[in-house]
Write a protein that binds this DNA or RNA. Structure first.
Length: 893
DNA sequence: CATCCGACATTTT
DNA sequence: AAAATGTCGGATG
């Protein structure tokens, strides 16, 4: 049974009237219980319930029919039942035929809905059918549970107040939700007296929330008004203290509560919000308001370990060093305290404020550490101040309103929690209310506003640290608005910016902000801006003449606690003004101090490799493969080909072997219809071909690319780009696994059509194979070409045309040719093993490895008279030769 | 017309 | 569910 089938079963089985006899059987069916067990359940032989009229299926659900209007009570009964526990029930469910109340006994999550809505809530019951909804979060499941409850509340409120869901009212709704979250958190942490808000709901919200609106309005208004100015408020509302701090400063509005919404709010109030982790929680509740974010449920929040990877080398490590140095001298420690109070942190893509929250927490922790030490070595000089780290030192820009509101709230919560830690140590704590200065969070487009206005540049004693995780988005995925944002940032300063990833704009703006100031910046980025095309196009402009990369984390897989992670490889790059100190390069688990980190995030001199259409070292021209852009209508697999030829033998003259990357590496077989201008009239005689060409035509007619839509439409019998060879061709897959010790390369006859998934040397000499199959070439490609994730991406302009080679003699060429043949022969010996199998680093056959080693030795001797010692030496040499050649060509021109 | 890329896409384990 | 590994065609120069 798959998820769709569960959904269909729910639709089918719970469409009609409720019948307490039929319902549990239908539920058992919907979750895929076998027919045999269904009949045993019907007969009662399998029913393990301990409640009259109940039904319990071992390990699955416990059902109990409720009296009218008493579903919640019935659910309580179910959850308290002994059998529920002993029989390891996953979901307890009760209904009176009008309302449904259910609880997931494992996650604790509850669900309330109308009976008619049950079919839309099938997701809740998926675990019964063996599908888990969320990966259990390792760090803190409370956050996820809190989030899903709030999401339900949000939905129920929008349903009861359709007006509140409109764009104009979004801010009001968002603000309402953050205020609710504040109350829930505050009443559990002692900011408000214990359960003050929950009591207000039970005592004054009505049985089903009918007066909840008035009650919450009164509570909120009280919190927004200092006690001497309160009029017209019910007496009970006086228990609510004045909160302010901006959180309740703007107008107060409260939506109407439906029965369901009220239930969800009470559910949420029943949780222990003390355990909420503010640095994650912010990003989680961000998903409440945004349906897209919700489907990604926290997919893009930065985990605390990753935040520390940024702010550690950016400024915390430095600070720790200063603290260590000052450890024995009170005056020196006071100087560090003074310094900490002058540190400001700015996240120009702050989302719900994770980076700011974690930075704040880390600074407060260090402050506590110092104060504690001061008490030891300089007793009697109690600090008058409580904390000199002010929330107003934290600046952020965030484009969505809800996230910006959440960021402010998250900072308040972080402050409260830091104060509580302070009280643990020193036994004193400032009053929590009214809230003081908040963080400076601006809701705006970071690529449009002047950063100086959001975060004023530091004065002589201040330090500003820019940190964050701006959005990554390749040019194919950018919206019109985002493209315009890029243009706004780069136009006039940088050429060829349109192909940049969105994140590049943050690096550029940061570079302009920090130049000549006491500012450093570091962002989490997609690794692609430090690879291939982007390096030479972007980095000279970011670094300019005065900046350098101060530290970097090279390629690590994106990871957080969300149920499904974004598929991207990240790097972290830190920018600073040029200085004498060494740089820190983190690769995997290792860290090293180096003299220079170049924009490829490699320890070495900064050399930019520019792609070029012309061979710089006299190698034969490498071309593209044939690019179909035909919606798959001209490509067939082997079985289809055989069937077509069986039906119409003459079709075989239009079918050619078709090779992309996997056809080379994994030995797949595909064929394509190959029709030329000369053969098209003949080909169109065949109905099969006519149909396919027509399909291509309709596919191309829909293309967003005007060239495909217009020029290519009458040419629908052929590919978009066409190349063929006369005698043979050498194919190199354009994307291939990073694990292989050598690049795959294949030699094929002229009958084979290569797709654009390969780079191709048409009719080129075979000694080229020896080059491509060499370690030397792989090292070059791996460094200067782009990557897909971290897999090699071969490029003719960046990798082949720029690859430094000596001027080979004819004798050397034939030696290389012989060496290439040998590699191909050894491979053939292992037939039918595929290239993927042969070049698996764990299983590569010895003779093939030996053949490659001989090839490397032969080739490298032609460069320097001996083999290179290691990859470092290979790269050093290649970059030197490249740079020399660039200089030489410049002189010649 | 050629080519770079994918907060990916799809298959395999 | 996590790991492995390369499609396909849009967008850009």
């Amino acid at each position: 049974m798959n998820v769709v089938e569960v959904e269909e079963a729910f639709e089918r089985l719970f469409a009609g009237e409720f019948d307490p006899e039929v319902f549990p059987i239908a539920l058992a069916e919907a979750i895929g219980t076998s027919n045999a067990n269904i009949s045993k359940l019907k007969s009662g032989a399998m029913n393990r319930t301990d409640l009259p009229g109940g039904t319990l299926l071992n390990g699955k659900f416990h059902f109990f029919p409720a009296e009218e209007g008493k579903t919640e009570e019935a659910l309580e009964t179910l959850c308290g039942s002994k059998a529920t526990k002993t029989r390891k029930v996953r979901v307890a469910i009760s209904t009176d035929g009008t309302a449904v109340a259910a609880r997931d006994m494992k996650s604790g999550e509850a669900r309330f809905c109308d009976y008619a809505e049950l079919k839309n809530n099938f997701g809740f019951f998926l675990p019964l059918a063996g599908f888990e909804r969320f990966k259990a979060a390792d760090e803190n499941p409370v956050d996820i549970r809190a989030t899903s409850r709030l999401a339900k509340l949000y939905d129920a409120l929008i349903k009861a107040n359709p007006e509140w869901g409109k764009d104009d009212n979004r801010h009001v709704m968002n603000q309402f939700m953050t205020r609710i979250v504040f109350c829930l958190f505050a009443e559990d942490t002692g900011i408000l007296s214990d359960n003050l808000f929950a009591r207000c709901l039970t005592d004054y919200g009505g049985n089903a929330g009918e007066t909840a609106q008035d009650a919450i309005l009164a509570a909120f208004t009280a919190m927004a008004t200092s006690s001497d100015k309160r009029h017209d408020l019910p007496k009970w509302a006086d228990d609510f203290p004045y909160v302010n701090g901006g959180l309740f400063a703007e107008g107060i509005a409260v939506p109407i509560f439906s029965r369901t919404a009220f239930q969800y709010l009470k559910e949420a109030a029943g949780m222990d919000w003390k355990e909420i982790n503010p640095d994650i929680f912010g990003s989680m509740i961000q998903s409440i308001a945004d349906p897209k974010a919700r489907s990604e449920l926290g997919m893009h929040y930065t985990s605390v370990p990753n935040i520390l990877k940024v702010i550690g080398p950016l400024f915390l490590d430095d600070l720790d060093e200063a603290i260590d140095k000052a450890w024995t001298k009170a005056s020196a420690l006071r100087a560090v305290l003074q310094r900490i109070s002058k540190i400001r942190v700015f996240d120009p893509a702050c989302g719900s404020g994770n980076f700011l929250v974690v930075s704040y927490r880390e600074l407060r922790d260090r402050e506590i550490r110092i104060l504690k030490r001061l008490e030891e070595i300089d007793p009697g000089h109690a600090m008058e101040m409580f904390s000199s780290v002010s929330l107003s030192n934290f600046h952020g820009i965030e484009i969505t309103d809800f996230a910006a509101e959440t960021a402010k709230l998250a900072l308040f919560i972080a402050e409260y929690q830091a104060n509580a830690r302070f009280a643990d140590v020193f036994g004193r704590m400032p009053p929590a209310l009214p809230l003081r200065d908040g963080g400076h969070i601006v809701c705006d487009n970071a690529l449009r506003v002047n950063w100086d206005a959001v975060c004023p540049p530091p004065d002589l004693v201040e330090e500003v640290y820019i940190a964050g995780n701006p959005p990554f988005l390749g040019s194919t995925y950018q919206t019109k608005e985002q493209k315009a944002d890029l243009a706004h940032v780069f136009k006039g300063d940088v050429k060829n910016f349109a192909a940049f990833d969105f994140v590049a704009a943050w690096f550029f703006k940061a570079s302009r902000y920090l130049e000549g100031r006491t500012v450093r910046a570091a962002f989490v980025s997609t690794n692609s801006i430090c690879q291939g095309y982007s390096v030479a196009a972007l980095w000279p402009h970011v670094l300019g003449r005065h900046l350098e990369i101060g530290f970097a984390h090279k390629d690590f897989k994106w990871r957080n606690n969300a149920s499904s992670n974004a598929a991207v490889i990240c790097s972290i790059v830190g920018l600073r003004n040029q200085g004498a100190s060494r740089k820190r390069l983190f690769i995997g688990d290792t860290t090293s101090l180096v003299d220079n980190i170049n924009p490829y995030l490699v320890n070495g001199p900064t050399v930019y490799v520019h792609g070029t259409r012309h061979g710089m070292f006299g190698l034969p021209a490498m071309d593209y493969g044939n690019k179909p852009v035909e919606g798959g209508h001209l490509i067939v697999d082997e079985t289809t080909r055989s069937r077509l030829i069986e039906e119409e033998p003459e079709l075989s003259k239009f079918l050619r072997p078709f090779m992309g990357s996997q056809e080379i590496t994994k030995g797949f077989q595909r064929y394509c219809f190959w029709i030329t201008d000369e053969t098209v009239s003949d080909a169109l005689q065949f109905p099969e071909i006519r149909e396919r060409v027509e399909s291509v035509r309709s596919f191309r007619a829909e293309s967003p690319d005007a060239y495909v839509r217009e020029k290519l439409l009458p040419l629908s019998y052929r590919f978009k780009q066409v190349f063929t060879s006369k005698s043979h061709a050498i194919l190199v897959p354009r994307v291939t696994s990073e694990r292989r010790p050598y690049l795959p390369v294949e030699r094929v006859g002229a009958d084979v059509i290569s797709s654009d998934l390969n780079q191709v040397l048409y009719d080129a000499p075979d000694w080229c194979i020896a080059l491509i199959a060499s370690k030397l070439h792989l090292v070059w490609i791996a460094t200067v070409c782009g990557k897909l994730k971290s897999d090699f991406r071969y490029s003719n302009t960046l990798g082949w045309n720029t690859f430094p080679v000596p001027a080979f003699t004819d004798k050397q060429k034939s030696a290389l040719e012989e060496s290439a043949r040998e590699i191909l022969l050894v491979r053939a010996d292992h037939h039918p093993k595929t290239i993927a199998q042969l070049y698996d680093p764990d299983k590569m056959p010895d003779d093939l490895r030996q053949a490659h080693r001989r090839n490397d030795k032969l080739l490298e001797s032609m460069y320097i008279g001996r083999p290179f010692r290691n990859d470092t030496e290979r790269l050093e040499y290649l970059f030197k030769r490249y740079a020399d050649r660039v200089a030489e060509l410049k002189k010649g021109a």
